[in-house]
Write a protein that binds this DNA or RNA. Structure first.
Length: 434
RNA sequence: GGUGGAUUACCCAAGCGGCCAAAGGGAUCUGACUGUAAAUCAGCUGGCUUCGCCUUCGGGGGUUCGAAUCCCUCAUCCACCA
């Protein structure tokens, strides 16, 4: 397997005395086991470490990308990553703070395990002395009997300790309560870490800080059973400075799978990063050096309207996830669609390239504009579409539509396509059939 | 096992027989300003064949001319008692 362009460009910043210092500077460490020991451990001989991803959806999302990039940074420092997909833990479900999860079908979970494995592989190097390895926790939990599990693993867990974990106590204090199934989740994750320690000498687990209880469940178990101090790093929850949730675009998660979130949508998501957040995002989501990021920070201060930091962030992450060519294509599309120029002046090739990136629908002259809004997914119902038009937020080829009963005319852009716009930045392509 | 309380739209939360498609707040969305920002201000926010009609107030059944509001029952959660 050869490295992708994005992967081969990556490196850690040599200006930091240690990797640990760089991780701190990037804001990737929220909690951890003993800091001094970790710093030393990471500077020493290569270690094996892991991070798990549960198949709760057919794709990973931006929150998972933080973990993938942390795995990669550690790999670049010479350590050996294990990417774990939760074939078994995905069948159980870790306790969400608010409510019990609905169990997914076994077949569905198995399918998602495959998708996630493929995605994880794109972000790690599978060559060289410290090549990555994919593991599935179903491989060691499926053969284990309930009796073995309770005798060999369960005996090491005290219920008092388990009840004190935030994830569990939050649920016990909520009206939702918690099932025995989800209560057991931390034991399964602890078992994973122990298994990976025994099989691969894995001594470090990374994860989101909301997983801290599950991470320490593993370090505690290894300490009890093997008498060894294993480590854990919890990354911070990424938050937006305006209080909204990070990683949501129009209420939906931003997925790494291009069929769920298009490269264009991915690029637009990052381009719209707040000034107040963009530097922190560059630190976490790109491999730019401290020096380069400092330069962007200065530009955000002096000429924020140019949004150079946002552009760089958007290109880098889009290229990382979807490849350089896709990133270049969506930059061109964005320039065409948001440029100040007349859309009608664009040549057919440019129009085709730009509109290809957008959600689209097949229409005919005479169709209702409101209907087209629904067809393209820009509005979820005709009522909402009419409302959008009434509010003056809809335009076809940048010509405002003011009548709720307006129909599409045949004046398309070059190439027989029209651009439907809702609000300032939600676009779709209308493909006219003869 | 017993008694009492709760369950309302995306979330929180009023309503307690007609004036309820359901107050208020949050969030989303749209407009103005702008940098495809943020903050701020304003407006919208169940659906549809939209001066009207249809489906919603945990599920099901009933009383009534008429129910989110009353009764029965089931489910879930909370509290106290055993």
């Amino acid at each position: 397997m050869t490295l992708s362009a994005a992967l081969s460009r990556q490196s850690n910043d040599a200006s930091f005395p240690t990797l640990w210092d760089e991780l701190h500077w990037r804001g990737l460490i929220h909690v951890s086991t003993n800091e001094d020991e970790l710093r030393t451990l990471l500077q020493g001989d290569p270690i094996t470490y892991y991070c798990g991803f549960d198949p709760t959806a057919p794709s990973l999302h931006l929150g998972n990308l933080v973990q993938l990039l942390l795995l990669r940074r550690l790999q670049l420092a010479g350590h050996k990553p294990l990417g774990l997909v939760g074939g078994s833990t995905g069948l159980i479900g870790d306790p969400k703070p608010t409510a019990e999860r609905t169990l997914n079908e076994r077949e569905t979970v198995a399918e998602w395990v495959g998708y996630l494995g493929n995605q994880i592989s794109k972000f790690l190097a599978f060559e060289g002395d410290n090549s990555a390895r994919l593991v599935n926790n179903l491989d060691w939990t499926a053969p284990m009997s309930a009796i073995d599990f309770l005798r060999e693993i369960g005996k090491h867990f005290r219920v008092g300790t388990m009840l004190k974990k935030d994830a569990v106590s939050a649920r016990l204090n909520s009206e939702a309560g918690i099932s025995y199934t989800e209560f057991s989740y931390q034991v399964l994750q602890g078992l994973d870490f122990l298994e990976l320690y025994r099989e691969y000498g894995c001594v470090l687990q990374t994860g989101g800080s909301d997983q801290w209880g599950n991470l320490t469940s593993g370090t505690d178990l290894i300490h009890k059973v093997e008498g060894v101090s294993a480590h854990a790093i919890g990354t911070p929850l990424i938050t937006n400075s305006d209080g909204t949730k990070f990683g949501k675009s129009e209420g939906n998660a931003v997925w790494l799978d291009s069929s769920l979130t298009s490269p264009y949508a991915m690029y637009q998501f990052w381009l719209n990063t707040l000034d107040a957040d963009v530097i922190a995002r560059l630190k976490v989501f790109t491999f730019l050096t401290r020096e380069e990021i400092d330069e962007y920070a200065a530009k955000v201060e002096t000429e924020p309207f140019k949004r150079e930091a946002q552009r760089r962030l958007a290109w880098d992450v889009t290229a990382l996830v979807h490849g350089d060519a896709a990133a270049d294509a969506v930059v061109a599309a964005s320039a065409a669609l948001f440029g100040n120029g007349d859309l009608f002046a664009l040549d057919a090739e440019t129009v085709r390239g730009a509109t290809q990136e957008l959600p689209s629908a097949r229409v005919a002259a005479g169709d209702l504009v409101a209907g087209a809004l629904v067809e393209t997914g820009l509005c979820s119902s005709l009522s909402e579409a009419r409302r959008a038009i009434a509010q003056g937020g809809v335009a076809v080829n940048n010509i405002a539509v003011s009548d709720e009963a307006a129909t599409l005319d045949s004046a398309t852009l070059a190439g027989g396509v029209s651009v439907l716009r809702r609000g300032k930045k939600t676009l779709a392509a209308l493909v006219f059939s003869a």
